[in-house]
């Protein structure tokens, strides 16, 4: 993990990182990744359902699933508009205002 990696991740995450923080961040991230990398050695015990390859990991990974509701019966339009827009840094009429996107 070097300065360039940090810059790439920061770009993906939309977080501006000052130059002087990049070095210490890359060290922190390297330590953290070193620690979490321990799970690689769990592969032996992953063998409970047989050998686990990348593909199999994906299949067995995560029994948790999202529960979704039907997108219906909306509330009456506009009843929360003022409350919510009051929190927006910038608004124009009933819209949240952002800079031009081209």
């Amino acid at each position: 993990m070097d300065k360039k990696d940090i810059e790439h991740l920061a770009k993906l995450s939309r977080i501006e990182i000052p130059e002087e923080e990049k070095e210490s961040l890359s060290k922190d991230l390297e330590n953290i990744l070193g620690h979490v990398g321990q799970i690689q050695s769990a592969s032996a015990s992953l063998g409970r359902d047989g050998e686990v390859t990348g593909e199999k990991t994906k299949k067995t990974a995560g029994k948790l699933r999202n529960v979704m509701r039907e997108d219906k019966n909306p509330h009456e339009p506009g009843i929360y508009t003022e409350k919510i827009l009051k929190e927006a840094p910038e608004r124009e009429g009933d819209y949240v205002k952002v800079k031009k996107i081209l």
Binding site: L12, A61, G62
Partner: peptide, 21 residues
């Protein structure tokens, strides 16, 4: 940043998917 790393293409199997397993 760690989240972006473990979910990025090429690393998600080794980290995120492995962790959920």
């Amino acid at each position: 940043l760690i989240g972006a790393y473990v979910l990025s293409a090429g690393y998600s199997d080794a980290y995120y998917n492995k962790a959920t397993a």
